[in-house]
Amino acid sequence: METKNSLKTAFNKLSYEPKENLSLDIWTRILKRKKQAIRFRLYAFSSLGIISLFSFVPVFKALFTEFAQSGFSDYLSLAFSNGSSLVVYWKDLALSLVESLPIFDVVLSFGIVLIFLISLRYVLKQIINNNNYVGQSYA
């Protein structure tokens, strides 16, 4: 019992005291990690955005070529030039347009635009976050 009490007293005396500036060091470390993560995301989304931007040219070129080759533009021109005559055959005209639509190229084009816009949005978000963290310190 005496040993127990003396051990208890000894442990109570050994109270942990943190070193000076520990909390500041922790906060600085957290900020550093956050800035690194922001910088990584910024480079990643910027690269993705630039790649998608450069992909615009070949993808849209292929899209316009396919539109011309598939005959979609010819069927569409019929709708504009003979609209009143073709009202009766609207179903066949609509099916001709749908069948000649180059679906794959349209989906690819929209996909590239979507990737570019999402990348741009995230890049701007990272820039704003980076500006929020610049100069921030433990107050």
Binding site: G71, D74, Y75, L78, S81, N82, S85, L86, V88, Y89, D92, L93, S96
Partner: peptide, 21 residues
């Protein structure tokens, strides 16, 4: 020509409208 029509069972297109361009 540009043809708008309906398909039939013989693999032919029954034309409803033809435009010569």
């Amino acid at each position: 020509i540009v043809v708008i029509g309906s398909p039939n069972e013989q693999g032919q297109i029954e034309a409803k409208f033809i435009r010569v361009i």
